[in-house]
């Protein structure tokens, strides 16, 4: 994909997460891009550079769907939802365990942040559950808080 236009800053991190999961978990990568596509269309699909970018993203999604064709996570929403939700929760749990053990490092910050992005992605399947809304809020806040503490040389509480 070409670099995303400025208007698509809100989906930049979801697109990066897709790229990072291309090999590790293509289903997660697919739904991150689908989320980016749906959100991107809401942000701006008229401006030529945005439209061009969305067409490229759509091309990529269609290719991925073909490649993943017989995967039930792609063909059935309920399975896809469970797959992304489990993955997000695993990320969240890993970061939370590290946090509670007082082990603060870049990897756990990234896991909190990625979990929060994946809870965004879950909205492609419908409204989030109250629990997922809370996890997303907590993960986003924790990632920012611990990041700032480490940057300022402070110990997170």
């Amino acid at each position: 994909l070409p670099p995303a236009p400025q208007q698509f800053k809100p989906i930049q991190h979801h697109l990066r997460t897709a790229q990072e999961h291309e090999k590790r978990d293509p289903v997660v990568a697919y739904f991150c891009r689908l989320y980016a596509m749906q959100t991107g269309m809401k942000i701006d699909s008229k401006t030529p550079e945005c439209h061009k970018f969305l067409v490229k993203l759509m091309d990529q999604l269609e290719i991925m769907k073909k490649q993943l064709g017989d995967n039930e996570s792609i063909t059935q929403d309920v399975v896809g939802n469970a797959h992304v939700e489990n993955y997000a929760y695993k990320m969240f749990l890993y970061a939370d365990t590290e946090d509670r053990a007082g082990r603060f490092h870049k990897n756990m910050i990234k896991s909190f942040y990625t979990a929060s992005l994946l809870y965004d992605v879950l909205t492609v399947f419908g409204e989030l559950t109250e629990e997922n809304i809370q996890h997303r809020k907590y993960a986003k806040w924790k990632a920012a808080y611990i990041h700032n503490c480490l940057k300022n040389g402070e110990t997170p509480q």
Partner: peptide, 27 residues
């Protein structure tokens, strides 16, 4: 000319929406 431009843009958007619907079609 403005109206031709806007109809082209709207047709392009429709095409993108249709492709998105096809993508979301459950088997």
């Amino acid at each position: 000319m403005g109206s031709v431009g806007s109809s082209v843009a709207s047709a392009e958007q429709d095409e993108l929406s249709q492709r998105l619907s096809r993508l979301r079609d459950q088997v």
